[in-house]
Design a protein around this nucleic acid. Sequence first.
DNA 1: GCTCATTTAAAACGACTGTTTGAATTTGTT
DNA 2: AACAAATTCAAACAGTCGTTTTAAATGAGC
Lengths: 254, 254
Amino acid sequence: MNTVATPKIPQISRISGVAATRSIEKIDAIDTKSRILDAAEELFMEHGFEATSLRLITTAANVNLAAANYHFGSKEELFQAVFTRRLDPMNRDRVALLTTYEAAAAVNPKTHALTCEKIISAMFIPALKMARDQEQGGKNFLRLLGRAYADPAPFIREFLSSQYAEMLGRFRAAFGRALPHIPREEVSWRLHFVMGALSFTLAGTDVLKMIAQYHPNEVENDELLLKRLAPFLAAGLRAPVGSAGDEHQWFNDA
Amino acid sequence: MNTVATPKIPQISRISGVAATRSIEKIDAIDTKSRILDAAEELFMEHGFEATSLRLITTAANVNLAAANYHFGSKEELFQAVFTRRLDPMNRDRVALLTTYEAAAAVNPKTHALTCEKIISAMFIPALKMARDQEQGGKNFLRLLGRAYADPAPFIREFLSSQYAEMLGRFRAAFGRALPHIPREEVSWRLHFVMGALSFTLAGTDVLKMIAQYHPNEVENDELLLKRLAPFLAAGLRAPVGSAGDEHQWFNDA
DNA sequence: GCTCATTTAAAACGACTGTTTGAATTTGTT
DNA sequence: AACAAATTCAAACAGTCGTTTTAAATGAGC
C-alpha cells in the first residue's frame, strides 16, 4: 500500500527548547495522547491555563489541532487529565505511606512514634520522588501544581478540592493525634499554612530568585528545597497555641 | 447643540452583583480613572489577569471601552496601576514600622528587643490595616496580591520583584539580626516560606474552605487568619537548623 | 476482504480579544 | 463667549480563541 511508509513525522521534536538534550525520544516515542499530555503539562506550567492555547499545545506536541478535542473533549478536560495522570498516584502514595507509618507506630509506639516529622515525611516523600523523576515531567508538574493552587478559575478549584479531599482528611486526623494539646480547629489552619508554603515553594516563581539570591544556576533543586522547608513547618505545627489573652501579644497596636 | 443632553449613561451600576448594597455610590461617586481601577481590582481578583477582558472591566465600571487604554495605555499597565495604588503604600508602611521598632530597640534593647514576633508584626500590621479597610477594596486587593504571586506571566513576576525588592531586603536583614544562630542563607529561605504561607493565606481560594470547614459563613475574617498565622511562622523561623548529618532525619527512606 | 478506531489535514464557525481611530463632547481657562 | 485641551463615544481593526465539520488516510483485528 504505502510506497515508502514514511509516516509523515515532522522534524521538530522539542517542546520549548530548554531540555533539548533527549527530548527527541521524550516526544516522539509515545502515542498521540501522551504527547499532548506532555506538551500541555509543560506549557500550562509555563504560561498558565488561560494563556496557553490548544494550537500552542498541539504544535509543540507535533499533533493535529483536532486531536486534542478528539482525545480529551475540551480544553478543561485536557487540563484535568494532565493533573489526574500524576496527582492521583502521588496522593495515593501519600496516604499509603501514612498508613504504613501508622501501622508501625501501632506495633511499637516507643521506637516508631508518629511524630509531626513522620507525618510531614509522608507528605513530602512522594513529592520528592516526583521531583527526582527527571525522565517523567516531575518537576514541571510540581510547578504546575503549585500554580494551580492559586488559580481563580472555578473549575480548577473544584477539581483540586475533590482531588485533595481524602488525603487532607487523613493527614488532618494524623496531625490531630500527633498534636493532642492543639485544638482541632487550629490544626486545620496550620495544615492550611503547610499546604500554602509547600505549594508556593513548589511553584517556584521568579520571586524565589528575588528572595534567595544564593543560587548561581540551578543548584538549588527541589529536593534541597523541601529539606529546608520540612523543619520550618514542623516547628510551626508544634508552636504553642496562643490563648485568648495572647491576642494582645500580636498586633496590639495595629 | 445637543437636543436634550442625555449623556447616555447606562443603567447597570454594580460590579459583580455580590456586594450590591452600596455599590451604586461606590462606583458612580468617583472619576473615571478610579472607577476603572476599582472594577479592575475586583475582576482581576475574581478571574485572574488573562481571563479578565477590558470589556468586562469597562462595562462594570460604567465607562467606555477606550477609556481604559486612554488612561492607562495598555492592559498590562492597568494591571500594574492596580497594584501600585495599594502595594506601594503598604510596603512603605512596613518598612516605616520596622524602622520604628529598630529605633525603639536601639534605645532600650531590654524592653523593646527586636524579636521575630516584632518583625512579623511589622510585616502583618500594614496588611491587617488594609484587610480592615472595608470601604477601600482592601480585602479584594489582598486576595489579588496572593494570586499574583503565583501568576506565571513574566511581566507580573518582574513587576512584583521590583516592587518587593527593597522591603524584603530590609526584613531579611532584620530577621538575620534577630536570629544570629541561623545562617543567613537559611534565613533567606525561611523568609521565602513566610511569604509563601502569607500569600497563600491571603489569596483565600476555595481550597481554604476545603481544609478548614469550621467557618459557617464569613466569620473567619482575614484578621483572625493572620493572628493564627503569625505564631506558626514565628516558630518556624526559630526552628533549629538541621546540621549536615540531620538530613538523614528527613526523608532518609525516600 | 472488511470493519472500526485512530490520526491527519484543511477549513470554517461564531465569538471574543486588545488596541486604534476620528469625530463628538465635555471641561477648564481666558 | 470663544478657544483649546481633555475626555468620551461608537465603530472598526486585525487577530486569536475553542470547537466542529468535512474529507481522506492510516493501521490493527476479526
